[in-house]
Nucleic acid binder design. Structure first.
Length: 234
DNA sequence: GCGACAG
DNA sequence: ATCTTGTCGC
């Protein structure tokens, strides 16, 4: 792929963006009328990715609007630099929606990151919209396993600080790792994430965006008769 | 140097 | 993340 920038340059950008990240602001439920979720899927072999965004009315959690889009991959997957790979595609689909979410849940970490600025924080700063990182696995830090009931949580500690929480969003399933992205504090992030869950491990906005991004990839594969990353047929 | 390592 | 088939449990 034609790489947009180097990891060194990306690191410098993160350093410059870091002081704009705000995780000290409580966000009440009344502050959120619309909540969005974003995710990206990839097509093996070709340098293409499919992003999706789904917006829900909060706290009713009724689907309001969804958009998808495809983009070329211009940055490799490097742990700690996911934003430089996925943010461009995500920003593109967010620009397509008519509704204005007051909060966006991102598939990945927020400040529970080596340098305190994961993809959720990165997007929050660029959009100037509160964001929360919801990841399926840990990138940095340590945590104690919470009890198995819905809503149980325990802090993620990294560099002697509480940067997030391991949250049980559904009874008996693996926890998800929640961390503030930008414009919201940890307690609010955990509370709001839980309020977005409808019986599944992942909060609905992210779950639906994930599904939609996959559908967009599949339709692309079908449209171009792609399989195993190669071309079959015309 | 070695192991870890979001999606 | 992607690809892939069956299997286990509510």
């Amino acid at each position: 792929m034609r790489v947009s920038i180097s990891v060194q340059e990306a690191k410098k950008i993160q350093r410059e963006m870091l002081d704009r990240v705000d995780v000290g602001r409580p966000l009440s439920d009344e502050d959120v009328r619309m909540v969005g979720g974003v995710d990206v899927s990839y097509l093996k072999g070709v340098e293409k990715m499919f992003a999706a965004v789904c917006v829900f009315k909060f706290p009713e959690m009724e689907l309001v609007e969804c958009k998808t889009g495809s983009s070329k991959v211009t940055f490799p997957y490097v742990p700690g630099y996911l934003a430089f790979r996925e943010a461009p595609a995500i920003l593109a689909v967010i620009n397509k929606i008519k509704s204005k979410p007051d909060l966006i849940l991102v598939d990945g970490h927020g400040v529970a990151h080596p340098r305190g600025i994961g993809i959720a924080s990165h997007l929050g700063v660029l959009l100037n919209i509160p964001t929360i990182g919801v990841a399926k696995s840990l990138l940095v830090g340590e945590y104690a396993e919470p009890s198995c009931e819905v809503g149980a949580s325990s802090p993620i500690v990294y560099d002697q600080k509480e940067v997030g929480a391991a949250l049980r969003t559904r009874k008996g399933v693996k926890v998800v790792f929640v961390s503030p992205g930008h414009g919201v504090d940890l307690d609010s992030a955990v509370r709001l994430t839980l309020a977005c869950c409808l019986g599944y491990r992942l909060p609905e906005p992210v779950r639906r965006a994930h599904r939609l991004a996959n559908e967009a990839r599949v339709s692309y594969q079908k449209k171009h008769a792609l399989r195993y990353g190669g071309t079959l047929g015309s």
